[in-house]
Every structure is written in C-alpha cells, then in structure tokens.
C-alpha cells in the first residue's frame, strides 16, 4: 500500500471522527472503540470502526400483530412461557433466588430464568439503576427480541425511592424504558413478584403487552432522554 493511500485513509478517518464529534460533543470514545486499522494474517489492512461495524445500523421497527386469532393463541403461549433475563440490576435481585428455589418455585407458573438477553422476554429491573448500569440495561433491553416486557420492582423505579437525591441513580425508569408492570415494595416480597407475573400474564393475554412497539414508536424521545444522562455515550444508537 502506498503512502498516498495511507494518508488518504488517515484523513478519511479523521474526517469521520470529526463528524462524529460534531454530532454530539459530549460523546467520548474509549481507546478500544476508536477507529483503527488491523493487519490481517495475510498482510492486508482492515479498517475497523468498532462502534458502527459490530452493530446493526437500523432503527427499530414496529412489529404490529397481524392475524388476530393467531396472535391471541401466541399471546397465550407468551403469557405461559415468560423467560426472564438473569440480570440482577439492583438489590431486588436478592429475592430472585427464593423464586427459583423450592419455597416459591416460579417454574410452576411458566416463568423461567434465562442467561442471555437474546432468549429472554422479560426484564426485571430490580430496583435502583445507576447510570452506569442503565447503559448496560439499555443495551440488554434492545438486544431482547420483541415482544418484550419490563417489570419494575420497588420504589426506586417509580420515583427514585430512597436514592431520590443520589447523583448516581436515575429517578424514573419510564423515561428511559417502557415499563409494563410496577410492583410496590422495597424490595417486593417473592409473593408480590409472583403477583406481578400474574398481572403481566393477564396483560399479555389481553394483548396489552406491546410496550416493545411503544419503544420503537417513541424511539427518538427515549434515546434523547437516555443520552441526556449517559455522559459517555460510546455505543451505537441501535443495539439490535
């Protein structure tokens, strides 16, 4: 590769990064996420922009239910098979182990834990969310396939809870993610959580579990709110 080409590439890269910087001044990029060139084993040079190469660049689309009867049947199946993402975001997650163990045994009700967001339908936000976790929560949530549901536990998700004046935790979850069901308590007992799953099942069966579409519809608004508080937004807008 001639020097000219390299110079050209470098100037292109510079332009791209400047364009990014102009888009959002607050954005700062970690060293490993910066534009870089990698030498492949065969000697060719591969240009990598980690933030845009590794992810989908599409906006989320609304998935409208199509056939009413089929959808009703599927909703029944969805309500009876809720797979919960095993992401303990806050202290409420201490009440998850009792649920999957003999005393409360939520498997009876078709609720199971799942380790990866790709296979999960329900996200339990177990209490307070620090901004640092919120960033990961957004990514996990966006990776979950639609239809997906969010269960918010405790006071912290409703209005900040006892951390209302903390510089680190958000106050209102519904500003950043669409929430299906709130369960009161600090933290809610496992029984209340099971009641929350019951309510979620009812909502899904009635066809009201369409918050994923709401997220897609109001995508710009949610994104604006998220970006307002996540100061180092070093991830792409679309995480699908």
């Amino acid at each position: 590769m001639s020097d000219l080409n390299i110079n050209q590439k470098v100037s292109e890269m510079l332009q791209r990064s400047e364009a990014n910087a102009q888009q959002d001044e607050k954005t700062f990029v970690r060293p490993e996420d910066e534009l870089r060139e990698v030498v492949a084993p065969d000697g060719s040079i591969i240009k990598i922009n980690p933030l845009y190469d590794y992810y989908s660049g599409e906006r989320p689309q609304e998935d409208k239910p199509k056939n009413a009867i089929v959808e009703k049947f599927l909703n029944w199946a969805r309500s009876e098979s809720i797979w919960v993402l095993g992401f303990g975001t806050g202290c409420g997650s201490i009440e998850i182990p009792p649920l999957v163990t003999p005393r409360y045994d939520m498997f009876r009700f078709g609720v199971q834990m799942r380790a990866t967001p790709r296979q999960s339908n329900a996200f339990i936000i177990s209490g307070y969310l620090s901004v640092k976790t919120l960033k990961r929560v957004i990514r996990s949530y966006e990776q979950m396939p639609s239809p997906k549901y969010v269960i918010a536990l405790g006071s912290c998700t409703i209005n900040g809870g006892m951390y209302y004046d903390s510089y680190s935790t958000i106050n209102r979850l519904d500003k950043y993610l669409p929430v299906d069901v709130y369960i009161a308590g600090c933290m809610p007992r496992p029984e209340a959580l099971l009641a929350g799953f019951g309510e979620l099942k009812r909502l899904i069966k009635e066809g009201k579990g369409e918050k994923a579409n709401e997220y897609a519809r109001n995508f710009d608004e949610y994104k604006a709110n998220q970006k307002k508080i996540i100061k180092d937004w070093n991830m792409p807008d679309y995480n699908w």
């Binding site: 199946a77 969805r78 009876r108 078709g110 339908n121 396939p145 239809p147």
Partner: peptide, 23 residues
C-alpha cells in the same frame, strides 16, 4: 420443588416460534 408443568416445553416452543424479531 414441583418444577415446570409437563406441557411447558411445547409452550416454550410455540412461544419461540411466535417471537417477532428475527435477526
């Protein structure tokens, strides 16, 4: 504990086939 209902795998299967997002 009791564990899942006997029909749970079928429901899980139907649910998974009914997921809207496929990427």
């Amino acid at each position: 504990r009791y564990g899942i209902p006997y029909y749970q795998p079928w429901i899980d299967l139907i649910k998974n086939l009914g997921i809207r997002t496929t990427l």
